[in-house]
Every structure is written in C-alpha cells, then in structure tokens.
Design a protein around this nucleic acid. Sequence first.
DNA 1: ACTTACGGTAAGTCATGGCTTACGCAAATG
DNA 2: CATTTGCGTAAGCCATGACTTACCGTAAGT
Lengths: 107, 107
Amino acid sequence: MAYANAFAALADPTRRMVFERLGKGPQAVGAIAETLPVSRPAVSQHLKVLKEAGLVSDRAEGTRRIYYIDPEGLGQMRAWLDRFWDTALAEFGAEVARDNLKRKDAK
Amino acid sequence: MAYANAFAALADPTRRMVFERLGKGPQAVGAIAETLPVSRPAVSQHLKVLKEAGLVSDRAEGTRRIYYIDPEGLGQMRAWLDRFWDTALAEFGAEVARDNLKRKDAK
DNA sequence: ACTTACGGTAAGTCATGGCTTACGCAAATG
DNA sequence: CATTTGCGTAAGCCATGACTTACCGTAAGT
C-alpha cells in the first residue's frame, strides 16, 4: 500500500522538480529551493511528503540537512507498474488485432 | 512530459481502483462502477483522466464502451522511473556506507 | 554568550479537483 | 417510432493541499 503515497507524492509538478533535482545528486534544502520558483518552507514541506512516501532520505551535516533519493519508494512503484505490464501488452495486442479485423470488414 | 499526467492520474485512490479493475481484463463503464463505492458518472470522469494520460483506451460495443489498459502510459512511467533507479541505488549505497563509518566512530 | 546560518513547523489563504444530481445523446429493442 | 439501456457532460458543493509569511529550535562562528 506504500506505493499509494509515492504516486501521490510525484503527482505534484513542483514536488517532482524537487525529486528530479535530487536525481543530480544529494542536496541541502536551501540549495534546492534556490533553483525552484517557490520558497524554502515550501521545499521543506515537499521533502517531508517525499520522505513519508519512501522516495527520499536525509542526513544531518552541521546545520544543514542533506537529502538524497531512497530506492525504496522507487522500487515499490516499479513493482506495482510491472504487475500490469505483461497483461496490458497482451490485451492491447488483442485489441489492435480486433481493430484491424473491423477495418478489413469495412473495405 | 506525458508521464506527468500519468502520475497525477494514478495519485487518486479511486482512480487507481478503476485502473486496477481494468488489470483483470477489459470492462464496460457500468460494470466497473458496480464494484466501486462511487457513482457511474464519477467512473466516467476518472476514465477520461486515465485516457488523457495514455493509461487506457476504449472501443464502442453497441451502446457500451469497453475500456482496457493502454501500455503507452505505463511505459512512459517505467522509463521515467528507470532514469533514477541506477544512480539512486549507487547513492543510497554510499550513504549507508557513510552511516556505518559514523557508527564505528561512535564506539 | 551573541549572532548568524539553516530548516522545520504553524496558521491562514486560495485554487484545484473529486463527487453528486440532472440532463442530453446514440445505439439497440419492441 | 417510442422506449430502454449505457455513457458522457454540465453545474454546483465541499474537502484537500500547495503556497506564503511569521516564528522557533539547533548548530557553528566570533
């Protein structure tokens, strides 16, 4: 059920930007905020959501907090998506075949 | 940029239930609504969002519309997630190693 | 000890979006 | 054709959540 929070977390554009920023490497909160069009508290709130979703972790470094991507959340999302992948491909193929038949009949 | 709509689409619990329902096989709108705690129009609206996100497609069958999962949206999400997967694993390993060092020092 | 730097939290505002009921449209059925 | 069945859309209501400013705690520097 944890993937639920992950999807919700990555649904917001700004929060996705925060996450993508961490894809370039670990960053402090202020450093992230500087590159984004929102205030630092907003970034803090986004990081909190991402952390609760298992998408990021953090460590203290003096007075700063360094955030980095946690594979946990990513893995759960991938697992969930993969549950649909194979069957979706098969079903879609069947639908396309049905569609081709119809077009043929129309001729 | 299309994966953005996909994440937003799967962020809602009800909409995720609709999608998961389609994972069992193609279904008509009314059939989906019967199994869910929301009205049929609500399901219609969710399907519209899922369709715009490339997550489902539909065909007409008499007066019903049969919806089924479209691999397109799933594929884009998987591709996006995979962009972070490898680097996230590596970074996370480095963080764990750093943490172990700290614990050692503390002894 | 004082001050500065860095971040998390509280409170309040405003937009987004998910839900309902009511309505309209098209295809099958008699 | 009139009726029924199955969906999509419109309008309106209400909760959620993303953002801001203000404030507080903590760690380093002088």
